[in-house]
Design a protein around this nucleic acid. Structure first.
Length: 209
DNA sequence: GACCAGGTCCTTG
DNA sequence: CAAGGACATGGT
């Protein structure tokens, strides 16, 4: 059983377990903000920060670009790394506002070009870029994060991120709905079955044989 | 009180 | 280039 087969099997097990998932359904700007805030951070803490940002009227890119850093920091403190993240939010916001004036302009940019462009923003790495592209802009890409790696390792697949991404993409096809569903399934499954203590119940582990 | 969380950047060897 | 550290709060 090669890497590709194992990943195909992972996908089948996830589909049997959850069916198609609707996951991280949020407006583009909140996806972009959340993608930065969730770096190395539990989602519950990100939710709390998003709530604070909304109350403060700082849940849009233009508001963030114009905000006093201290205000931004106080809203996102609960996500940790708040000084770094405040700077990253500001950089991402000004990137979008400087480069594109309307969403229609963004929609015209091919995905790989937009991806490379996002990666030039300080504070935006591969995972953050793919999250914004996949969940915020409905593009054809796939998110490789700690959960994806953990599940793959469980299945006996250890490959560099870029190869994992290629294999998942070719296995899943170009439907954005399926791409986001699969990554959502991975997160749900990893949280439920691949935590430190109960990795025994993980069906994906069987692929080791 | 240690240890980890849906990363990324910068500095060293 | 690989490895190691910094960034920081909140939950187990």
């Amino acid at each position: 059983m090669d890497e590709r087969d194992r990943i195909q099997t992972i996908i089948s097990i996830l589909n049997e377990t959850y069916g198609t998932l609707s996951w991280w359904d949020a407006p583009f700007e909140e996806v972009a903000i959340g993608a930065i805030l969730t770096q190395q951070t539990r989602w519950e803490n990100v939710e709390a920060a998003l709530t604070r940002l909304r109350s403060a009227g700082l849940n849009t890119l233009s508001a963030i670009a114009a905000a006093d850093p201290a205000d931004l920091e106080s809203c996102i403190r609960c996500t940790g790394f708040y000084r770094v993240k405040s700077a990253r939010l500001h950089q991402l916001a000004t990137f979008f506002l400087d480069q594109y004036h309307e969403m229609e302009e963004i929609d015209l940019i091919p995905t790989d070009l937009l991806r490379r462009s996002l990666l030039t923003v300080n504070g935006v790495g591969e995972e953050t870029a793919d999250s914004i592209l996949c969940y915020g802009l409905f593009r054809e890409t796939f998110v490789i994060d700690a959960y994806t790696r953990r599940i793959c390792t469980c299945a006996g697949v250890s490959l560099p991120d870029d190869q994992l991404r290629r294999i998942f993409l070719s296995a899943l096809g170009s439907d954005n709905r399926l791409l986001r569903s699969c990554h959502g399934q991975i997160v749900e499954y990893a949280k439920e079955y691949c935590s430190k203590k109960r990795c025994q119940e993980c069906r994906i582990r069987i692929l080791h044989e």
